[in-house]
Design a protein around this nucleic acid. Structure first.
Lengths: 158, 158
DNA sequence: CAAAATTGCGAAAGATTCTTGCGCAAGAGC
DNA sequence: GCTCTTGCGCAAGAATCTTTCGCAATTTTG
């Protein structure tokens, strides 16, 4: 996999543009980054194959689709041996309410980003699935009120 | 804006496919959802204009780009009046290290998703910017170890 | 230092896709 | 039963994608 040093200024511009609008046509993209379409497409393919671009995703409006509850859950486990961490990680993948999950260090062991259609559904999930899962010690919940910032994972200078 | 009820089964399929691969061609998409290309494109446009599709984004590989530290910060403020919440929300938008931010209810007032190139940069940010910002009471940090699940915000049946 | 190899750009052309304009059919309302 | 609405799909022109190829700049090598 190419390292950071393998990317020149044009590659960074491509990444910034596609992080901002992943469906931009290659013609538009090439014009924005200042090269013609064919080399631009080759660079994009290279970034994809190198795994620097992991994929593309449409961003959906959860409330408009009837998903009114977005919450974060901080999970503490009783035992944090490697096997237990993997077991819990695997369990999160089976829960559709959990959309993103991170293993973290600090006061908790996992952070779960959850989406549900209503509060009752979410609370039922927390009580019946999450808190009663094996090895789960603590569950702290933060219901989101609104999204305040939403940019891509990587910051670009200007 | 159309409500959930305005979407039929084909619309849901379109959303699921585009959440999975936002750069799929319209021809491919139309074939997957079982209609021809023109009505498929019209449906996509309608979903975009209705704000149900909020945009498209390339997913970038942060570590491969030299961003080795991903963390979440839970922020408690001294005062939670509307003006203070808005002020802090606005402040997060000016910090490039903060990539996503949510206003939350619970033990904390904000949850920040942060990305930095190295631990020193992140710690400096927490101490010199975040913890010393006006009205900030508590800062709890969870450094991520690895991502365990990463799907779109909206869950689809099957 | 010069020749060869490498790298990456951009023009050109054919294949694919996008996009619009219609005609048609099915269902709703009068 | 007729009209209106809605949404599909065919067809055609416009735009884009993708490959091929030649060229120039840089690097490597003898």
């Amino acid at each position: 996999m190419p390292l950071k040093a393998d990317l020149d200024a044009i590659d960074w511009k491509i990444l910034r543009e596609l992080q901002g609008d992943g469906r931009m046509t290659n013609v538009e993209l090439s014009s924005r980054v200042g090269i013609s379409a064919p080399p631009c497409l080759r660079r994009v393919r290279r970034l994809e194959e190198a795994g620097i671009i992991r994929g593309y995703r449409a961003l959906l409006n959860a409330p408009a689709l009837g998903m009114d509850v977005v919450a974060f859950c901080l999970i503490g486990l009783h035992h944090q041996a490697d096997a237990e961490l993997k077991t819990f990680a695997e369990r999160t993948r089976g829960w559709p309410i959990v959309r993103d999950a991170w293993m973290v260090s600090g006061e908790s062991d996992f952070l779960l980003h959850c989406v549900a259609s209503d509060l009752g559904t979410f609370q039922t999930f927390v009580i019946e699935q999450l808190a009663s899962a094996p090895n789960v010690d603590t569950v702290r919940t933060a219901l989101t009120i609104r999204r305040v910032k939403d940019e891509g994972l990587v910051a670009f200078p200007t």
